[in-house]
Amino acid sequence: MSGIALSRLAQERKAWRKDHPFGFVAVPTKNPDGTMNLMNWECAIPGKKGTPWEGGLFKLRMLFKDDYPSSPPKCKFEPPLFHPNVYPSGTVCLSILEEDKDWRPAITIKQILLGIQELLNEPNIQDPAQAEAYTIYCQNRVEYEKRVRAQAKKFAPS
């Protein structure tokens, strides 16, 4: 494992614990031996107030490669969400998460999670990743928002 990646992720964890947006979660997972795995984080993004996503808490896994922060983490909703920019596998399609697009090593975990929260309610229809959600979003916004509200209710924190 890269010392650069681990040191950056340790800084990220410290900064997150000191200050993070209300309702968001970002925690490194534990290895079988109980030690912390900084390369694999369990996160959760709350649906934004005043949107059909409100009330939901959407679980996301963030996986970092050894060359982080040169390369972005892979962000994957578990379980996958109904959304035009979420692949059926759950992987998020967002330009700041793509090395050859808008990724920059200075982007923080907090910025990534806030960017994904923004994307939930403002899909990028130029870059669809899920045919069904994309089609319904474009053709029947009322039905799309109904499905999103049902999903938010399903993923409401207990």
Rank of each mutant, 00 (worst) to 15 (best):
152 A>F: 07
64 F>H: 03
30 K>W: 03
71 S>M: 06
128 P>Y: 01
92 V>S: 09
31 N>R: 11
21 P>D: 04
73 P>T: 10
67 D>H: 15
44 A>H: 07
11 Q>S: 11
25 V>Q: 12
125 I>Y: 02
119 L>H: 07
53 W>M: 04
4 I>D: 15
132 E>N: 08
157 P>A: 12
94 L>A: 04
63 L>Q: 14
22 F>M: 01
21 P>K: 06
122 E>I: 11
112 I>K: 08
94 L>G: 00
67 D>E: 11
116 I>F: 07
15 A>V: 11
8 R>W: 04
134 Y>E: 06
88 P>F: 09
88 P>C: 00
155 F>C: 14
143 E>A: 12
114 L>P: 14
66 D>K: 09
25 V>S: 08
71 S>K: 11
113 L>R: 07
137 Y>F: 09
55 G>C: 12
17 R>D: 00
152 A>K: 02
77 F>W: 01
94 L>W: 05
84 P>G: 03
95 S>T: 09
107 I>A: 13
84 P>T: 10
158 S>T: 13
154 K>Y: 09
145 E>Q: 11
85 N>W: 03
98 E>Q: 02
153 K>S: 10
14 K>T: 05
34 G>R: 09
117 Q>C: 12
31 N>C: 12
118 E>N: 14
103 W>S: 01
153 K>A: 15
157 P>K: 15
73 P>S: 06
97 L>F: 07
122 E>G: 08
120 L>E: 02
96 I>N: 02
115 G>R: 00
43 C>I: 01
139 Q>M: 12
78 E>P: 03
156 A>H: 13
144 Y>N: 03
63 L>N: 11
82 F>P: 02
101 K>D: 14
18 K>L: 04
135 T>D: 07
137 Y>S: 02
83 H>N: 00
4 I>V: 08
140 N>S: 13
49 K>I: 10
123 P>S: 02
106 A>H: 01
51 T>K: 05
9 L>W: 06
155 F>P: 02
30 K>H: 09
18 K>E: 05
128 P>V: 00
152 A>I: 04
130 Q>W: 13
25 V>Y: 08
122 E>V: 11
43 C>E: 08
87 Y>D: 03
9 L>Q: 03
17 R>M: 03
28 P>H: 07
140 N>W: 01
15 A>L: 12
21 P>A: 00
2 S>L: 06
137 Y>I: 06
95 S>L: 04
121 N>H: 09
7 S>D: 06
